[in-house]
């Protein structure tokens, strides 16, 4: 009798506790969803849709899409090799390099912008030299890309590193004992197996680039990206004028989320 009763008590305990966790967590969930819904519903969809075609909105959207794409390409070209190296590295070197990679993630974006300005801004050695050769590093598309790459590329490195590490080392050894060199092994075994994780990292970096504001506004107020345009509309014309672009950004965020969930490899959901 006694053991049975105590087990029943335990079950009741657990159910109660689970209910409490859900109630507490539910508050937070509402806090996420209600403002989003109110943003989407605060203006009639027709009005928002009509504004989507306005020149400043279209310009900002094209700038953002082009620069975010470029940033992700740059982040991948340099970030994937670094991730592969990090996945193979061990000990102190790995810890140190990983810390450096994570630095832009923990640095406030506006500080990242300042840091970059001290290197490539007007009056700096690099900035002047580039500008003299017709490649302005601030107030240009390149400036936007520099800001976005700095802030978003760690997502590619960190996520791809985890993806590479998730590939069983023995599979790579198996390939090599079968006579295939490192490069062939990478191409035929490691990359195909790590691909979902790599794609997740690229998606995260893209989403982060699209939304980048702090570093971008320091490096390139012009040409305006969507977040900068939101800021300008908000400060000059009011909150409602900023809605159409905000809706686009929400759309991009949801699309990224769907892709990550489909890949089943959302590193933030592990």
């Amino acid at each position: 009798m006694f053991p049975t009763k105590s087990r029943a008590d335990a079950v009741v305990d657990r159910v109660d506790w689970l209910t409490v966790t859900l109630l507490l967590g539910g508050v937070l969930l509402c806090y996420y969803l209600v403002p989003l819904a109110s943003l989407l519903l605060s203006q009639p969809p027709g009005v928002v849709l009509r504004r989507l075609g306005e020149p400043d909105v279209v310009a900002a959207a094209s700038t953002s899409l082009a620069t975010a794409t470029a940033s992700v390409v740059v982040a991948s070209v340099f970030g994937l090799p670094l991730a592969y190296w990090l996945a193979a590295a061990e000990g102190r070197a790995e810890t140190l390099v990983t810390a450096v990679v994570v630095l832009p993630l923990v640095l406030p974006p506006i500080v990242s912008g300042m840091v970059l300005l001290t290197l490539v801004g007007p009056g700096t050695l690099v900035g002047e030299a580039a500008a003299a050769n017709g490649v302005p590093l601030t107030r240009s598309l390149i400036g936007v890309v520099l800001a976005q790459t700095f802030v978003a590329s760690p997502f590619v490195v960190v996520t791809a590193k985890a993806a590479f590490e998730g590939v069983d080392r023995n599979l790579e050894y198996a390939s090599r004992t079968l006579g295939k060199n490192r490069l062939t092994t990478l191409r035929r075994v490691t990359l195909p197996l790590a691909w979902p994780g790599i794609l997740a990292g690229i998606t995260l970096a893209f989403a982060r680039s699209i939304g980048e504001f702090g570093a971008t506004i320091m490096l390139a107020y012009y040409p305006r990206t969507m977040p900068v345009q939101i800021w300008v509309s908000f400060t000059t014309l009011g909150l409602e004028q900023a809605f159409p672009i905000a809706v686009i950004l929400v759309g991009v965020a949801i699309a990224a989320l769907v892709l990550l969930t489909t890949l089943g490899r959302n590193p933030l959901a592990r």
């Binding site: 023995n170 090599r176 004992t177 079968l178 006579g179 075994v189 197996l193």
Partner: peptide
């Protein structure tokens, strides 16, 4: 010499088959 230059074949304890390839593609890998 790296493994790929030794012509020393190793059958792993768990097989270490490439999971993204079919059995045939595994066998024909090398």
């Amino acid at each position: 010499r790296p493994p790929e230059e030794r012509r020393v074949g190793l059958v792993f304890q768990d097989g270490a088959l490439f999971p993204h390839l079919t059995a045939r593609e595994n066998v024909e890998y090398a």
